[in-house]
Design a protein around this nucleic acid. Structure first.
Lengths: 118, 118
DNA sequence: TTTCCTGTCAACCAAAAGGTTGCATAATTA
DNA sequence: TAATTATGCAACCTTTTGGTTGACAGGAAA
């Protein structure tokens, strides 16, 4: 059993949380897919594709927008929504970091084993 | 304005949703980090590092377990928890797919532009 | 055996999430 | 100008989530 001296301080990393939460909903993932396929789209045209209400889609888009996964260009009364895949990198980076932490431990373990019972 | 004939059928992709939700919580991400750093750990030792209750951590671990992000080996009364990064691929695959859908549209667009107003 | 340790399960609670409807507003169109 | 269209906002409701506490059960240790 190992001992820890103090609480782990993990930065809430609000942005990453927001991103992952945004993308963890199936409807929002579908919206992103649609936007990537068809390019900039109006809210109405997006909403027409789903069985839920216009307002529900509007809210989903707002979540995606706050997370930076879409951008909005308002021309007159119509809002043109476009996917923005830049943020994906932040999530991929976390995966990468986690994997490297994992690998580092394995390497340490390997070194210890090679050096015998020192 | 483009026209869609029918509702978009997006597979709920329950597994991906479960994975992303599991990982979208800062405490659970921290737990995964700890597990990667220190290797197999007991629930008690993990919980000791956080300010929240033992039971809260136990529940977080259950969420991670259901998503397949950790595995559990029970020896006597102690549960040895280990990170399992295999599932990360599923999330990365979705990112990759999204990007490729994006690229495909750009290519189509490019072709149209090159062929002039055909 | 009696007591402690490790962990789950169940009940409960507050807050957040995902949905709905109704209304307001601004921009087009007739 | 009057009607319609595109959208956001607010209020409301139900389900989920993240946390708590209080049993409880099975292994270890006294």
């Amino acid at each position: 059993m190992y001992i820890f001296n103090h609480m782990v301080e993990y930065k809430d990393d609000h942005i990453l949380t927001q991103l992952l939460k945004a993308v963890s909903d199936a409807t929002r993932r579908s919206l992103l897919t649609q936007l990537c396929q068809h390019g900039p789209s109006r809210v109405t045209d997006l909403a027409d594709q789903y069985e839920m209400s216009f307002n529900a889609i509007s809210k989903h888009l707002k979540v995606l927008e706050k997370a930076g996964m879409i951008t909005r260009r308002t021309i007159g009364r119509t809002h043109w929504i476009e996917a923005n895949l830049d943020q994906i990198g932040l999530m991929e980076d976390w995966f990468k970091e986690l994997k490297s932490i994992w690998e580092l431990r394995l390497e340490r373990l390997d070194t210890i084993l090679k050096n015998g019972g020192n």
